[in-house]
Structures are given as structure tokens and as C-alpha cells.
Amino acid sequence: MKNFARRLAMGPWLGIALIVFLLVLWQLAAELKWVSPLSLPSVTSVLATLWDLLLSGELLKELASSLWRMFAGYFIGGALGVLLGLLMASFRPVYNLLEPITEILRPIPSPAYVPIAILFLGIDDEMKIFMVAFASFFPVLLNTYSGVRSVDPVQMQTARTFGVKGAKILWQVVLPSAAPSIFTGMRVSLAVALIVMVISEMVAASNGIGYFVLAAQRGFKTREMFAGIITLAVLGYCLNRIFLAIESRVLAWHRGATQQQKN
């Protein structure tokens, strides 16, 4: 018994046990009506609703429109972040031109842009894509900039001694060398993109998972609301996992090289 407890404490099961415990607590709170069933439906009923929503295809439809907006914005913002980060790090005048304005715009919380975005872009996809792109842009920009700044000059000299110059150096040396940093920015932006996508859909939308959750709450359909939130949790978890898998494949050399340095 003692042995079992120790093995539980050392393994991955401890964290899972906590989640199961909290779900049981939730179930009890709902069953025994510690909390009003109107606000807190039982876990089992939420999961049943989630299952129905998945089977009917309703949830997947909302998810599809959300994911389209999110990825469109994420890739636009990410691409611009890499491009401008590269330019700012490579050309002093570009840096001098853009640094002050980024420092002013960056600290403003993204949701504060929603009213402006609605004024200029309406309440359709353009507004949400813009919001996600805008929020995804800054982490990628900053990390690309610092990644490019720290490229080893010896590597660029090496390219030059082999007759490589100009844009080819950017492509062959600077980008791969800055890739670990760029990936860090992209990972931060992915989390930000998910948040901003949900927020912009809650503010103004007629579909999407953010809209779905808010509409369910307003219609006192709390089971649907919780089903939507669980979907978001699973989505966020999966996106991060997929990202890490891609990253470890693309940057396998970097993990090896940095582990080597630590030894």
C-alpha cells in the first residue's frame, strides 16, 4: 500500500488523479444541489450534451468558422511579424522608423482595439481576422527581431567567404539561425490568437465557438455553455501539442545543440 502511494506520487498519475477528483466534486455539487443546477449542470449531463452537439455537427460547424478566422489572422500576423522583425533587425533606418510606434501600440491590450476594428471593418470575418492578426503580430515581431540580432557574425562571414551575399544570406543563414527564437514567438502568438478569437466572437458575431458559448449562457443553456468551454480547452491543448510536435521536428538540431552545450 505504501509502495503504491509512492508510485502514485512519482508518476504522471498524480495530476490526472487531481482532475478526476475535481470532476467528481463537480458531479457531487451538481447532484446534491450544493450549487443551483441552473448554473452548474452535472458533468455527465455536460458530456452528454457535448456528445450530442458533436454528433449533430453543430459544434464542428462553429469550430470550423472559428478556426478559419483564427488561422487566417495567425498566419497573416505571424508572416508580417517575421518580415518586419527581419527588416528591423537588418536595417537600422527601418528599426528607427518602427521601434517607437511598436512600443506604443504593443502594451495596449488587444480587446481595446475591438471598438476601432468594428468601426472600420464591421462585425464580419475581416474584423476578427484583423484582431487575431494584430495580436499575433507583436510576439512574433519581437522574437524575430531579437533572434536575428543575435545571429553569430561568424556565420554570416562564412556565407560571404563562399560567395553568398544579400538576400541569400538572410534565407540561408539568418532565418535558420533565428528559427528557434521565431518559433518561441509563434508559440506565444498561438495562445494569444486563441484568446483574441474567442473575445472577438463574444463581442460581435453570429457564429463561432466564442459566440456559441456566450449565446448559450444568455439563453440559460448552461450545459451547452460548459460543452463549448470544454471544447475550447481541448482545442487549446491540441493546438499546443501539434505546435510542439512541429517545432521539435523542425528544430531537432537546436535541441541537440543546446543539450550538448549544457553537458
Partner: peptide, 17 residues
């Protein structure tokens, strides 16, 4: 093109990727 430079710092001159 007839010349190549070999750097002192080979750890920094080789491309780690």
C-alpha cells in the same frame, strides 16, 4: 572565388542546423 577563409571559431562557423 579562388579564395576560402577558414575561421578560428569552427564551433561558430559550422552551421548547426
Amino acid at each position: 572565388p579562388e579564395m576560402v577563409y577558414v575561421f578560428q571559431q569552427y564551433t561558430r562557423s559550422l552551421f548547426p542546423w
